[in-house]
Amino acid sequence: MNEEKFHRDPEEYAIFKRLNNKQFSKRPNDIYVTRKTNFKAQLERCMKLISSNGNYRDICIHGMGSALQRTINLALQFQLKTNCQLHTAISSIEVTDHLMPLLDDLEPTSDTRWVSTIHITCTLPTILTETK
């Protein structure tokens, strides 16, 4: 790993990180957490999904890489508010780095890395649904 990083000299190569657009599930109750999106807005979105206009009994929160922490944080915050049950699964996903040369006598190459992901399923308690 260290060796790879060594020859990725910013003077020589420009790195383009790309996500393999494997089929991610795109149900309305899937939430993908990014580092850029406002945390409060993400929480709001979760709340909206279980409220009357979304009316979902369970939502899935996905996160990957450096957004793992945020994902867990979001799930916990959501739990605090709704007292839901959390079910966590972890996996890893393959991503591609394209290395485009910046100097004339270099060949372009591409790298693959494995990035860990987390999928948290939040299920609302059944009592709550009955009261509602």
Partner: peptide
């Protein structure tokens, strides 16, 4: 110019 020109090895074999 930072962009590679036709003389770059990357382009010479015609794959890009």
């Amino acid at each position: 110019n930072t962009n590679l020109t036709p003389k770059a090895k990357m382009y010479l074999n015609g794959q890009f």
